[in-house]
């Protein structure tokens, strides 16, 4: 079984709001002192793929990214986690890239590298939180889609996955080829690569492709995209908290109860 995991390199989403800055002209976050990391849910998706490989060693796990040269670091990390192959589609664009365009790039790349039995995505990017690329890539590849999965295994002619939907947990099955978006759960906390594997990852090849080779017009990523992000801003917070004072916790609690009632929502 060949699993392709689509990953994106992002500015560390754990940057606290006090240090978070944006560039309103470029309409993107400013990196500042933050690290570049694999987007949170994408790293969980890698873990899900590698767990399949742990059980069935013939599984091939390919990490695929669409991003600038710096995104090779994300692929090195994936290789250090013991993904088998790494592919990068090159772009020097920064800022928001339209999800419909990104989906076309990923789908074309997956076809060019010989297809996949399973394509995994994080449930949403840890930058723009759009949750569109997985769905749209599945459409482009005409694959069925399972969203919000936390783990999967290979079964006869398909896969079985556990997912967390609106109505709670369920186990679902689908025939391959199939696409899944992965959400975080204790079961897919990403593994920490071993030092030896980190060293070896630096010697492994990374296949690089260009949009030209894929026959894709880069304009679909922004100028000719169906959606334009017109504005990015940090909303002003003029929140005033009323701290309830009192001699004892009990007194505070009684006053708080009155104050909650005064909100008139109960």
């Amino acid at each position: 079984m060949r699993i392709v995991v689509c990953i994106k390199q992002v500015i560390d989403p754990e940057v606290p709001p006090s240090e978070f800055r944006i560039d309103p002209q470029k309409k993107e976050a400013v990196q500042g002192r933050a690290n570049l990391v694999i987007s949170t849910f994408d790293e969980c998706a890698l873990e899900v793929a590698l767990q399949v490989k742990d059980k069935v060693p013939e599984t091939t796990v390919t990490a695929l990214t669409f991003g600038p040269k710096s995104a090779e670091e994300a692929l090195r990390k994936a290789l250090a986690m013991r993904a088998d192959e790494a592919v990068r589609v090159d772009t020097d664009r920064t800022g928001r890239m339209d999800p419909a365009g990104v989906a076309q790039v990923l789908a074309s790349t997956i076809q060019k590298i010989g297809g996949a039995d399973v394509v995994l995505f994080g449930r949403e990017g840890a930058d723009f939180d759009s949750a569109q690329v997985g769905q749209m890539t599945a459409e482009a590849l005409e694959m069925p889609l399972i969203t919000l999965a936390t783990e999967m295994e290979a079964v006869d002619k398909g896969i079985r996955a556990r997912r967390h939907g609106d109505d709670g947990w369920s186990v679902v099955e689908a025939p391959t080829p199939v696409a899944l978006t992965i959400t975080n759960a204790p079961v897919n906390v990403p593994r920490i690569p071993k030092v030896k594997d980190v060293m070896q990852a630096h010697r492994k090849p990374i296949t690089t492709m260009t949009l030209d080779e894929l026959g894709i017009d880069p304009a679909i990523l922004s100028e000719a995209a169906p959606v334009e992000m017109e504005e990015l801003f940090i909303p002003e917070v003029n929140n005033q908290v009323t701290i309830i004072e009192g001699e004892t916790p009990e007194e505070k609690a009684e006053k708080l109860a009155q104050a909650i009632l005064a909100l008139k929502v109960l």
């Binding site: 989403p13 940057v15 709001p17 978070f20 944006i22 309409k27 976050a29 840890a126 930058d127 723009f128 939180d129 995209a225 169906p226 959606v227 334009e228 992000m229 017109e230 504005e231 990015l232 801003f233 940090i234 909303p235």
Partner: peptide
């Protein structure tokens, strides 16, 4: 966007 740290306004073309 950005985990609630920023807001974005979109136009559909």
């Amino acid at each position: 966007v950005y985990g609630g740290k920023a807001m974005a306004t979109y136009a559909v073309r």
